[in-house]
């Protein structure tokens, strides 16, 4: 018996590949929807909008996960250290 895939098997593999690429495209599309539709829409909610405006005004990167990535942490630390000195 030959190991070569039959025509229907070839078609099946091709179909699976198409499906995989389609799923990848859908996944990437969902990221696009999130960035350009869902999250901006969320900003219109009364509870979300004001916080987002404050973030935008202060130009904060909310995605940083460690204190050295944040410029504000350095300013906060300098201010507080100098401010509480008179109470120590």
């Amino acid at each position: 018996m030959s190991d070569k895939p039959t025509e229907s098997e070839k078609l099946n593999i091709f179909g699976q590949r198409i499906k995989a690429w389609l799923l990848l495209a859908i996944g990437l599309g969902l990221i696009w929807v999130m960035a350009f539709a869902a999250l901006p829409l969320g900003q219109r909610l009364p509870a979300v909008g004001p916080v987002m405006d404050a973030i935008e005004r202060a130009d904060i990167d909310a995605g940083t996960y460690w204190y050295t990535q944040s410029e504000e942490t350095a300013r906060a630390q300098m201010f507080i250290r100098n401010a509480i000195r008179r109470y120590e």
């Binding site: 909310a62 996960y65 990535q69 504000e72 906060a76 630390q77």
Partner: peptide, 20 residues
């Protein structure tokens, strides 16, 4: 940290400095 600074900024400078 980023989210802390962002949330703190909504309270004003003092709130943000303490939070950070």
């Amino acid at each position: 940290t980023g989210a802390v600074v962002a949330a703190g900024a909504f309270l004003g400078e003092t709130g943000m400095f303490v939070a950070a």
